[in-house]
């Protein structure tokens, strides 16, 4: 078996390197874009509707809240593989010719945004109420309180979960091979199909994913230690 694994690595290593780049880019850029979207959505999610608010403010807040809740429910309630197929082909049918990579990145970003919105909401709600009161007591407006006091703490509180989402994305980006994204899994699948060496080819893919996720976890741990945040073990979100 080892000889067959070595043979696959020898023959397919340039494709594996390319696949590795695609996997890393999808996971990293997808997590970053997802985080940016989640920053906005989580702010909409935790907005408080006060009885003193003007009617149009109340309506806007309610629309924002409903939109985010619906978004999170849909994206967390459906598999990413299904989302990828729907996005890829519906855009194609609408005449937008986009690459499989672009469609994959779009899917992974939107999917990540849904999970991170909830992660950040938890982070925001875990900030002590006294922080808001103290900020308001020195005259900071509610938006400045959120921006300068609550949000930085929520982001720090959520760091471990955000890092976990990156690791999840490294692994779960494999499902994007369904729309012909050429990532590590897709290369291994091609190699397996060529020689009917499914176990050997997938062991190579598993090794690459393991090295990637392990090294990412170590880098995240270093950053966490530097930021002084606790590491939290979490199960896959997808």
């Amino acid at each position: 078996m080892i000889n067959k694994i070595i043979m696959i690595i020898r023959e397919f290593w340039p494709q594996f390197v390319e696949g590795l780049k695609v996997t890393v880019l999808l996971a990293l850029i997808g997590t970053i874009i997802g985080l940016i979207i989640a920053l906005i959505f989580s702010a909409l999610r935790v907005v408080k509707i006060n009885k003193n608010d003007k009617i149009h403010i109340k309506i806007l807040k309610n629309i924002g809240l409903l939109f985010v809740k619906t978004y999170v429910t849909i994206f967390r309630g459906t598999p990413m593989i299904v989302q990828a197929v729907i996005f890829y082909y519906s855009f194609y049918q609408a005449g937008i010719k986009w690459s499989a990579f672009a469609a994959g990145l779009f899917t992974i970003s939107l999917n990540t945004a849904a999970y991170l919105t909830e992660v950040l909401r938890g982070g925001i709600e875990s900030v002590d109420k006294g922080q808001t009161e103290a900020a308001r007591s020195i005259g900071l407006s509610s938006s400045k309180t959120f921006l300068y006091i609550i949000f930085p703490q929520a982001l720090k509180n959520s760091f471990a979960s955000i890092g976990n989402e990156l690791i999840v994305n490294i692994k779960d980006s494999a499902v994007l091979s369904v729309i012909s994204v050429i990532d590590v899994f897709s290369v291994a699948d091609s190699a397996a199909g060529k020689y009917f060496l499914f176990i050997e080819a997938m062991l190579v893919a598993a090794g690459i994913y393991l090295v990637l996720t392990y090294s990412t976890a170590k880098i995240l741990q270093l950053i966490e230690r530097k930021l002084g945040v606790e590491t939290k073990e979490m199960v896959s979100s997808n």
Binding site: G130, A134, I149, Q153
Partner: peptide, 11 residues
């Protein structure tokens, strides 16, 4: 205002 629990900004 000065609070019982200090409420210093942790960040």
């Amino acid at each position: 205002m000065v609070f019982q629990q200090f409420n210093l900004f942790n960040n």
